[in-house]
Simulated scan of single mutants.
Amino acid sequence: MIKQTQSDTELEEKGWATAKTLAEALPYIQIYDREIVTIKYGGHAMGDEAVAKLFAGDIVLLKLLGIHPVVVHGGGPQISAMLNRAGVKSTFVDGLRVTDDATMEIAEMVLSGAVNKEIANWITRAGREADVRGVGLSGKDAGLLTVEKATRIKKDPDSMIEQVVDLGYVGEPKVVDDKLLRTLINDPEHDYVPVIAPIGVAEDGLTYNINADTVAGAVAGKLNAKRMLLLTDIAGVLDGDKDLIRQMTVSEARQLIEDGVAVGGMIPKLETAIAAIEAGVEAVVILDGRRPHAMLVELFTEHGAGTLITRDPQ
């Protein structure tokens, strides 16, 4: 007779706990079945290989559960590192990098090259046994992103006179052509996961860098995504006391910007969330991408993670 050891008991208890977790997740899995979830992957978490592998594994799991993930990635820290090595100085306006010729060349090289292909490769490796494949794209592929030059208006703190700030080669999505994305998502024979670098082309043929949050919002709106997840390197939206806000409406998000509570990179995130919801996305979540399995906690548990932003009640 073979007796059960302490380690066997622990494994059995772990198995029962896993089964319970899966059963509790079932209602949420059904909510997102065959729905599109757009995920913006960015922040310093992208530079951590262990976290990147977990992220790729979670993306594969979403695909195997019948969800259609579409990944849009940033690469700010990677661009900054390359610019520093090249001796090019960066300046920012409301969280957007002012982009001259030299910066644009490096940004495209980093975003469309190293970062984009690395993320696609991690997804393909994580999904090898199930034939889930990451497909690296930029907005320049198949006319995916047509952009227009972005501008910002700032008030001089002394004179309070408004001035137009030239951001250089920074664009905003004007047209999202989703034909290629839908072809990949709906392929009957393969499980493809689009991975999009935030680079686009204007009608005059010039290449522009785009804020990845903004691209994610535009893509999510065009695809009528069920959810948009903004994975970053903070827990979510913080109030004036630096406490996490669990849930807010579009109007409340606007108020945070107007009151100056939201600053820096949080401004384009909230603006993106607002625009995405107004374009038809059901809800947007800003959450910490450095935490293992943050996406799974958000989508498949009652508590969720980060800050959930929804439309105003009717």
Rank of each mutant, 00 (worst) to 15 (best):
T99G: 09
R290C: 02
P77E: 12
I39R: 10
H293P: 02
N84Q: 14
T214R: 14
V135D: 03
S80W: 01
I234D: 01
E10I: 14
I196G: 06
I245Y: 04
E258P: 00
I36L: 05
L144Q: 06
V165D: 09
T38D: 07
A120D: 05
P173D: 11
A235M: 02
L231V: 02
V250C: 11
D101F: 13
T207P: 00
A273W: 00
T249W: 06
K140P: 00
E24M: 13
G264N: 12
G168N: 07
E10P: 00
A273V: 02
H68I: 05
I199H: 09
L270K: 04
A102C: 05
T310H: 01
A275R: 15
G200Q: 06
T151C: 07
L61E: 12
D312H: 06
L238A: 13
R290T: 11
G113N: 04
T151P: 00
L296W: 04
D177N: 15
G143R: 10
Q247I: 02
T146L: 13
T232G: 01
E108C: 12
I199M: 14
G95T: 02
G139K: 08
I274A: 12
V165P: 03
V98N: 06
L144K: 06
P77Y: 07
T21H: 12
L223S: 10
V193D: 04
T249F: 07
I119G: 06
T272I: 13
P173H: 09
A279N: 12
G75W: 00
V170Y: 07
A56Q: 06
V175Q: 09
D166I: 10
T103V: 15
S80D: 14
T214D: 07
R246D: 08
G306Q: 02
V115E: 04
V165M: 14
L54D: 12
V215A: 14
V51Q: 12
A220W: 01
D166H: 13
P268K: 08
V88C: 09
D178T: 14
G134F: 00
G87S: 05
A273K: 01
A197E: 03
G260F: 06
L83E: 13
R246T: 10
K269L: 02
R128C: 07
L62K: 13
V51F: 03
E13G: 03
S80G: 11
H44N: 14
W122D: 10
G43S: 03
P157V: 03
V37I: 13
L137F: 03
S251Q: 09
D58C: 10
M109F: 01
I277K: 02
G304T: 01
I31L: 12
V51K: 10
L22T: 10
M228Q: 08
E12G: 08
F55V: 15
M1G: 14
D156N: 15
M46P: 00
A56R: 06
V285M: 02
V93N: 09
T21W: 08
E203G: 04
T124R: 10
E148M: 10
E49N: 10
I36W: 06
G205N: 09
E118G: 04
L180T: 03
P69M: 05
T91A: 15
P27Q: 03
N209V: 11
L181Q: 05
E189V: 03
D187C: 01
I161S: 14
G127Y: 01
V72A: 11
D243F: 02
G205C: 11
D8E: 09
K269C: 04
I210L: 15
G76E: 07
R246S: 14
V72C: 11
